[in-house]
């Protein structure tokens, strides 16, 4: 692809971008600004003491830590999953393919209840894990399981179409030049998949940060240990403390925004370096 001005020969840029910005403003930016303005009804000291209370800070660690870890797990297994679905045929593949989206369709509370039923001490899996000293339900590990569950489809479904469209000629060329399969994957396939993989990672992470319904059942919600930030927002709302709730929400938003911005920068960068 030749760099330069040539791409602007394609029509529709002003319309597409204009509509995108209009829609985002209407659906995302104006409503989010309501959150920011509500939190601004606190003065700086109130704001700071709300968002930097030790329990709140501990909850950021739990929330962002488990969300990043879950997204990473999904990055690895989601890639394997997509690979298997695209490249191999095996019995039951259609069913597997169809069920990947399940985490979206189940109401999050149902997912939480189902996962707790599986991993609790008397659950299907929990009863085997507990004697081994592995406690899943009501620990941070439980949070990780729930977040992995809700994030999986993002990675699979963003990688899958790209992998499907991937030109086999490059791989063939690599092989004819003497590369082994791993080298081909490492230097040809993976770079081509990386933008999609990063997108999937970013989405899985973003979704995990805000998740409430499925986590709450399995987390145990012990302060400082397994209490997630969205729960603290809810408990503020229970006291009708809108300003306090939005203050914590603003912190979450800003942190997520920065992390997503960095991931997206990385994604655009890999995409450009691939085009050259």
């Amino acid at each position: 692809m030749r760099p330069g001005k040539r791409h602007r020969v394609l029509p529709g840029f002003p319309l597409a971008l204009g509509y995108t910005l209009f829609y985002l403003a209407l659906i995302v930016l104006i409503p989010l600004s309501a959150v920011f303005l509500k939190s601004a009804t606190l003065n700086w000291e109130q704001f700071w003491s709300t968002v930097s209370a030790p329990r709140v800070v501990a909850s950021y660690r739990v929330t962002f830590g488990t969300a990043l870890l879950a997204a990473a797990i999904n990055g690895v297994f989601g890639l394997i999953f997509a690979w298997v679905l695209v490249r191999y045929s095996f019995p039951g593949k259609r069913v597997v393919d169809a069920l990947v989206d399940l985490p979206f369709a189940l109401p999050t509370a149902v997912a939480g209840i189902a996962l707790t039923a599986i991993y609790a001490g008397n659950g299907w899996l929990g009863q085997w894990l507990e004697p081994l000293g592995v406690k899943v339900a009501f620990t941070p590990l439980g949070i990780l399981i729930a977040l992995t569950f809700i994030g999986l489809p993002f990675v699979v479904r963003t990688v899958q179409p790209v992998l499907e469209d991937l030109d086999t000629e490059l791989e063939e060329a690599a092989v004819s030049l003497g590369a082994d399969r791993w080298q081909t994957f490492r230097h040809i396939v993976l770079p081509a998949l990386l933008p999609a993989l990063l997108t999937g990672f970013a989405l899985a992470f973003a979704r995990a940060v805000g998740e409430y319904g499925s986590v709450i059942f399995i987390a145990g919600n012990v302060p400082m240990v397994s209490e997630i930030t969205p729960l603290l927002i809810i408990s503020k709302l229970e006291q009708f403390d809108y300003a306090g709730a939005t203050a914590i929400a603003v912190v979450m938003l800003v942190v997520s925004f920065v992390l997503l911005f960095l991931i997206n920068g990385l994604q655009i960068w890999t995409n450009r370096s691939r085009e050259r």
Partner: peptide
Amino acid sequence: VPVRDGGGRGATTTFTQRGM
């Protein structure tokens, strides 16, 4: 109190269904 539940009927489920 070993676990704290989120809301609604969480505690009941923990006691009756999870056997805790």
